[in-house]
Design a protein around this nucleic acid. Structure first.
Lengths: 129, 129
DNA sequence: TTTCTAAATGCAATTTAGTTGCAATAACGG
DNA sequence: CCGTTATTGCAACTAAATTGCATTTAGAAA
């Protein structure tokens, strides 16, 4: 739980808010180079615990963090995360997902990752041909 | 592409076939300790390229490999992978998945990971209470 | 404003998954 | 049995993330 406000925490929040797509720790570490990487990792972890951000794991095993925008009273992270293989941006696809599990299976957590080409890069591709 | 049959490849195949759930490289490395870990990684990679096995990334970033059982003529890996948080086994849930992406998004690959409690562990839990 | 203490940070070292280069070995067609 | 070349083993390396510990600092209380 966050107890104190610090410059590093504010910097992390600001940077996450500035982007409408997911960021990996390394993006933050590079941008906020005057803070130690351990500090960045620890801040992300604590924001995660506090529900200020949420996280998804890419299909090459890297964590991406997102400011929670659609979560209001209740945290709702049942959505796809989409990574564009062209621009490499990672975004939340905030559509409802219905998950059907076999009988007697209990769901605890999901991590749904899709790679493909985003709207934007698709447009660029078709206009350049 | 696989060109030659070797003991290490046979051992990997055998070990994968012996289990009806997914295995991570480390499971194989430990079990087949008389082979080098690099060999294991390379064999898995080549089996993957040849479509003999498929792979999913867990929500803590570790690869799991599965013998393709349901794939027949066509490879079909559009399914959930489920990891039980009790017994830690990882299995394929071979139900059809419908993925709806926003307009102009092109799908290239999916990695759908679910954690929870499996049928088996759920039974054990309720019978012990 | 100063003091105090726990929270937060920075640094160095470590862990873990996976990769690379290269020399040695071995599968298998001829 | 030979020769080619796929395959393997070893050592070293990379990259993401974590841990321990000493130092610094936010902010409540005096």
């Amino acid at each position: 739980m966050i107890k104190r406000n610090t410059k590093s925490k504010q910097a992390v929040i600001d940077f996450l808010k500035k982007h409408d797509y997911g960021l990996k720790p390394d993006d933050l570490i590079k941008e906020l180079a005057h803070f130690d990487k351990v500090t960045i990792y620890r801040i992300l972890q604590s924001f995660l615990n506090d529900g200020i951000i949420h996280k998804a794991i890419s299909d090459d095993g890297i964590s991406y963090y997102f400011i929670c925008k659609t979560c209001k009273e209740v945290h709702f992270h049942n959505h796809y995360h989409f990574k564009c293989s062209v621009c490499e941006k990672v975004e939340c696809i905030n559509d409802e997902i219905e998950i059907k599990l076999p009988k007697n299976y209990k769901l605890e957590n999901i991590n749904f990752w899709i790679t493909g080409i985003c709207n934007n890069c698709n447009k660029l591709k078709s206009s350049s041909s």
